[in-house]
Computed example of a mutant assay.
Amino acid sequence: MTFNPLEQRGIPLDRQLRNWRELNVDPIDPDHCDPYTRCRIITMNGIEVEAILFSHHLARHTLDPEVKRQLARVRYIEAQQQKVVNWLLPGVSSVLETTIAYEQVAVDLTAWVARMEPDPYLKQAYQFGVLEDFDHLYRYANLYEMIEHRKAEAIVDGLTEVMPGRPTKYHHRDPVDNVRDPYDKDATNPLSKLHALTIMSAEQQTMNFYMNTGPTYMEPIARQLYQEIGLIEEEHVTHYESLVDPGETWWEQLVNHEYNECYLYHSFMEQESDPKVKAIWELHLNMELEHLHAACDLMRRHDGRDPASVLAPELPNVLTFEPNKQYLRELLETQMDLTTLGAGYVREAHERFERMQEQIHGGEEPPSERVMAEHGAMFGREYRVQSEGEHPDPAMREK
């Protein structure tokens, strides 16, 4: 059934404010929940954080006090939504357990978007990034077994494979080689805009999470690994945000944000297995419909354009969390040795890449390699859980 959020009305804005009792949601049970429920929660937290930050930046760039007030009204509701969504995560989970869930999001969300992306250049950007998130999951799984003596499979529940991707030490590139070419806002498929905004928001939240939680660990190797991967997440945000056409006006970006929230809440409502969480997705969708209409009014008034001219006429097929094992194995077979050069990709190391490697590593092994060595010394083996055979890259099998 088609769903056009521009034709739907939700809860009036003046009825969206919730009291403390309504905000006090019960968290999910980490031992019995669907891992993809947790992934949807983490994703929507990142989407809401991006919506709030974007609204703040827009408010700082307008002189119109009425626009500032309108943004503030909606933004406060968005902030309540973010608190409800993020507070669904269980306090009994450790930071490292939540980290592994963040990387499961990065792997299966980015892989699904890559599979569905109609633009070949954008598809390649997602394929490139997901092999790095895949390796981050593997490095954190080693750290998790070292510190908490548990397997990451207890968190990802076999839905996402835990095995090496493109080695993390090779993710450090000259900053200029993290900047991609943007899509053309006037020619690109509206779905591509939603994909770019979704992955950018998710990676931004991962960057924020690592930069704030990394130093809370006492173990030196944990602090160092979070520091290294946190820097790579900054590279990923640069990589993905540069895909968005900077020629989009503030108002066009605003309606894209609100439309994307409608798309994702609708998608997650359609597939959610937890009734309590599903009710939250449905409630927030009905709130976001009004936020979208408010943004559309601002665009008509200040941009002089009809929002329907830049938005999809109906929501695309629901964004779905599902296993992507075979797809990722195919990427491992064909794209493991890629790096970036300018806005494109090459298979050979080049001067800027090698210089960055020398400067950042300083002739020593980075934390992502040391965690493997310490794991091996502790357990006398590598971390390996593969349901379908060994790693496809012989070089990685020898490590």
Rank of each mutant, 00 (worst) to 15 (best):
T2F: 02
W20P: 12
D31P: 12
D31A: 05
H32Q: 12
C39W: 05
T43H: 11
M44V: 01
N45V: 06
G46M: 07
G46D: 10
L53F: 06
H56G: 15
H56M: 12
H57I: 04
L58I: 11
K68N: 15
R75H: 07
Y76W: 14
Q80C: 12
Q81A: 09
L88A: 15
L88G: 14
P90I: 05
S94H: 11
E97I: 02
T99Y: 03
T110R: 08
A111S: 15
W112K: 11
V113I: 12
R115G: 01
M116W: 01
E117D: 14
E117N: 08
D119L: 04
D119R: 06
P120G: 01
K123N: 09
F128H: 11
F134N: 10
D135Q: 15
H136I: 07
Y138I: 10
R139N: 13
Y144Q: 08
M146N: 07
R150E: 15
L159G: 11
T160V: 14
R166Q: 13
P167R: 14
H171I: 03
H172S: 14
R173F: 05
D174V: 13
D174L: 09
D174A: 11
D177I: 14
V179M: 09
V179S: 09
R180N: 15
P182V: 01
K193M: 14
L194S: 08
L197Q: 15
S201L: 09
E203P: 04
E203L: 00
Q204L: 05
N208G: 01
N212S: 03
P220A: 00
I232S: 08
T238L: 08
H239F: 00
H239P: 10
E241P: 07
E252I: 00
E252M: 01
N256F: 00
C262T: 06
S267T: 05
E272Y: 00
K278T: 09
W281T: 03
L289E: 09
L298E: 13
R300Q: 13
G304V: 02
D306R: 02
N317L: 05
T320E: 11
P323M: 03
L328C: 04
R329P: 10
E330W: 00
L332S: 10
L332C: 05
E333Q: 08
E333C: 02
L338D: 09
T339D: 14
G342R: 09
A343L: 06
A343Q: 13
V346A: 02
M356H: 12
Q357W: 02
E358H: 12
G362T: 08
E369G: 05
R370A: 04
V371M: 04
E374F: 00
E382W: 03
G389D: 11
P392G: 10
M396Y: 07
R397V: 14
